[in-house]
């Protein structure tokens, strides 16, 4: 009995506030926009009984999805988000792996401090961390001032409000998500394997590729999912650091909803985004569950 209550409470909460809302999104993506409150038709009228349900069902169609394929804005935004998410995940991996590796190789008594230093930015407001780059990357910003002073450039670079700024923003804010799982994998790595490889004549570099990388695979996979999936739907970073030509689907959805007030199209955009992400999300969940069961 107590077990049932324990299961039922969080289960019901998530069903009502996580799963049901998605079903509503799917339903509204099949409706038409209307000048009403709420701004879509048809609305389900249960008081009209069976006839009401039939009217409602016959009013649903795939029109909004055809609209998404018609207008190049949408598929361009999906492709551009995909490109930005993939590239910035790889960049984050390239920046994050050496840091995680350095942490795992650091003396034991340094590790808790290093760990805290990597986690601390993660606790600090995401919005503020993105915003902090605005003063650095702008035309008269500190990076340009520094480079002009060094004499590397003679004209200030335009970085803010371009895709480059979006890449920097994603790598910066998601870096701890990449470092921590890789560090967790590297920390467990048995050093004697590397010593054995070296004794058997393996160079340090090939020992790294043949032993360290494969054994930290779980961490790399988890880190890449943790960066790629949210980056794909990112809104804050392109809105603050990107320019008018930065096309990301999270921003399109936001504008469709808040500026155009077209709820059905915004819902269709969300459903397609979710369909793109559902495979990586399931893979991520499988990976986490496997790791958890391997530990237990």
């Amino acid at each position: 009995m107590r077990r049932l209550a324990l299961i039922a409470l969080p289960y019901l909460w998530l069903l009502v506030l996580f799963l049901v809302p998605f079903l509503i999104v799917v339903k509204i993506s099949l409706s038409d926009q209307a000048l009403a409150i709420p701004p879509y038709t048809p609305t389900l009228d249960l008081s009209a009984g069976w006839q009401g349900i039939r009217d409602w069902a016959s009013g649903l169609d795939l029109e909004n999805y055809w609209f998404l394929t018609d207008d190049p804005l949408y598929w361009k935004a999906y492709l551009s988000s995909l490109r930005i998410a993939v590239l910035s995940t790889l960049l984050t991996l390239m920046v994050g792996y050496p840091i995680a590796y350095g942490m795992a190789r650091a003396p034991d008594h340094w590790r808790p401090t290093l760990m805290m230093l990597v986690i601390l930015p993660f606790w600090t407001s995401f919005l503020i961390r993105v915003y902090s780059w605005k003063a650095i990357l702008s035309q008269e910003g500190l990076l340009n001032q520094f480079l002009l002073w060094l004499g590397v450039i003679h004209e200030p670079l335009t970085i803010l409000n371009t895709n480059t700024a979006v890449y920097i923003g994603i790598v910066y804010t998601y870096l701890p998500f990449m470092i921590l799982p890789i560090y967790a994998a590297l920390e467990k790595l048995d050093q004697s394997l590397l010593e054995a490889a070296e004794d058997l004549g393996c160079s340090r570099l090939s020992a790294f590729w043949l032993i360290t990388v494969p054994l930290s695979k779980q961490g790399i996979i988890a880190g890449c999912f943790l960066v790629f999936i949210p980056a794909m739907g990112e809104f804050v970073i392109p809105a603050l650091l990107g320019g008018s030509r930065t096309l990301m689907i999270g921003k399109v959805l936001w504008e469709e909803f808040f500026s155009n007030r077209d709820w059905p199209v915004a819902s269709a955009v969300a459903v397609v985004l979710l369909m793109i992400l559902i495979v990586p999300i399931i893979l991520f969940q499988r990976n986490e569950q496997r790791n958890r069961e391997a530990e237990g």
């Binding site: 996580f18 799963l19 999936i229 739907g233 709820w263």
Partner: peptide, 20 residues
């Protein structure tokens, strides 16, 4: 349902909850 919200883009979760 426990793992999906960890990585779900906020725009989707926000829109879905609002519509609910």
């Amino acid at each position: 349902m426990i793992y999906a919200p960890l990585v779900m883009p906020d725009v989707i979760t926000g829109l879905a909850l609002l519509l609910l």
